[in-house]
Design a protein around this nucleic acid. Structure first.
Length: 384
RNA sequence: GGGCAGGUGGUAGAGCGGUCAAUUACUCCAGACUGUAAAUCUGGCGCCUUUAUGGCUACAUAGGUUCGAAUCCUAUCCUGCCCA
């Protein structure tokens, strides 16, 4: 366990030696993770860092979650090429509520400490801001790759964005973090935490940077890219999405997205090298992942369902029933959101992408009550 | 404050008075092939209809010029660069 915590899904550790000593010292460490209360749905890419945090918890350390209600009014500039619109207070509260619900599927709430940035920043005066800013050099801030890039490329960069690393860094001072976790793109922000802690006479936090989990299409997993597996995806859906990842990613997903011991993953690697059908290994992967978020029982039924629909090409056992008012096939497709417009519906029909009761539909196809309508390979509904 | 260059569809990025609902690439959708993988190939990708050499809405916003504007003019907002 202690070995895995420094290697599994981890891209970089600063300062490794120091952290190892800390872990061996028997001290109860405070592990900080900042949360950006923006999007609502977590995906298994976000989960990577949460699982790392969970492993620390399992060793008896305390997870310190910081909700970035102050930084939300800036928007993390890391890796972004434009200024982000700020969020309102109620957005933040709402977003956090959904975040918490999802994150608790992974974290242990008994070893959890929760803070809002406003706990300390609400009291900040301009003098305080100036003082904190004086502890960092402009050269340091401008050494941030993202800032340099944006200036070089002639993209917008607003002054307040330069404060982002400082604000996040102060969280580490306020909470006296021993370790801070983050994604690889957070490196600069977390390093700034070390700088600022040093300036305040505190022992600088160690940093554990999680590696990226690649999305289902091989690109970085991201909400905007639409290639993510959400923690709240339905079991069947989640299973299907895992099955659709590229073969090359299978082992990486085992490491990053499941809790299977590394030794077992090594076994699977050998099986693959020996010529096992990647599909079968992937089924195990899907089963593992679905089990984490939905339990073993639902995972098994998702596996059966998948085999039924896609291997044997039968229909799913449960098809969503939808009340329809339209009578034409085009009208129904639009009404049920299977197509976004009538033109879209026509296109789908022209391209033989629509079936009504297993028959390829044309524009004049009649839809009797209780018909099964299929669009593409995976979308089914039953009319009422 | 002054000068210059820009703001185009989900993204990047062409177009610079009619032939523009707008080249192209990526994303995306459907089909073929498959292991619901990847790769590849084919078709499509603003909305509506009586499917038409059709209508409507769109190229930052608001006006204007013109038979006709994404393209020209004016104002406004926004961005970058240079000067102070």
């Amino acid at each position: 366990m202690e070995d895995e915590i420094l290697t599994r899904s981890v891209a970089e550790i600063i300062d490794r030696k120091h952290l190892e000593q800390q872990l061996h010292s028997g001290k109860k460490l405070r592990i900080k993770l900042g949360i950006d209360p923006t999007g609502a749905r977590l995906h298994i890419g976000h989960a990577v860092v949460l699982w790392i945090l969970r492993r620390f918890q399992d060793l008896g350390h305390t997870a310190v979650l910081i909700i970035g209600d102050t930084t939300a009014s800036i928007g993390d500039p890391s890796g972004k090429n434009e200024t982000r619109p700020p969020l309102t207070k109620s957005d933040i509260a709402k977003n956090f509520a959904t975040y918490e619900q999802q994150a608790l599927k992974i974290l242990d709430k008994n070893r959890l400490e929760l803070h809002w940035q406003s706990e300390w920043f609400a009291k900040f005066t301009l003098q305080d801001v100036i003082y904190e800013a004086s502890q960092l050099s402009a050269g340091w801030i401008m050494s941030h790759e993202t800032f340099r890039q944006r200036l070089k490329m002639g993209q917008s960069l607003a002054f307040h964005e330069l404060l982002y690393p400082l604000i996040q860094a102060y969280d580490s001072v306020a909470t006296k973090a021993d370790v801070e976790l983050g994604g690889l793109d957070q490196k600069f922000n977390l390093l700034t935490g070390r700088e600022l802690m040093h300036a305040h006479g505190l022992e600088p936090q160690d940093i554990v940077l999680a590696d990226y989990l690649i999305g289902t299409d091989g690109q970085k997993m991201g909400k905007t890219l639409g290639n993510f597996i959400a923690l709240e995806d339905e079991p069947n859906d989640m299973f299907g999405k895992v099955m659709s990842i590229n073969d090359d990613l299978i082992l990486k997903y085992f490491e990053f997205a499941t809790q299977m011991p590394i030794s077992e993953i090594k076994e699977l690697e050998k099986e693959l090298e020996a010529g096992a059908n990647p599909r079968d290994i992937k089924k195990r992967l899907a089963q593992e992942i679905v089990t984490l978020y939905h339990g073993a029982k639902l995972a098994t039924s998702a596996a059966n369902e998948w085999a039924k629909v896609f291997s044997k090409k039968e229909k799913p056992s449960e098809i969503r029933n939808v009340k329809v008012h339209e009578s034409s096939i085009i009208g129904i497709l639009v009404e049920t959101n299977l197509a976004s417009s009538k033109n879209e519906a026509k296109r789908l029909i022209d391209q033989k992408g629509v079936r009504v009761n297993d028959e390829i539909a044309n524009e004049g196809t009649k839809v009797p009550p209780s018909s099964i309508i299929q669009v593409g390979k995976r979308k089914f509904i039953k009319t009422e």
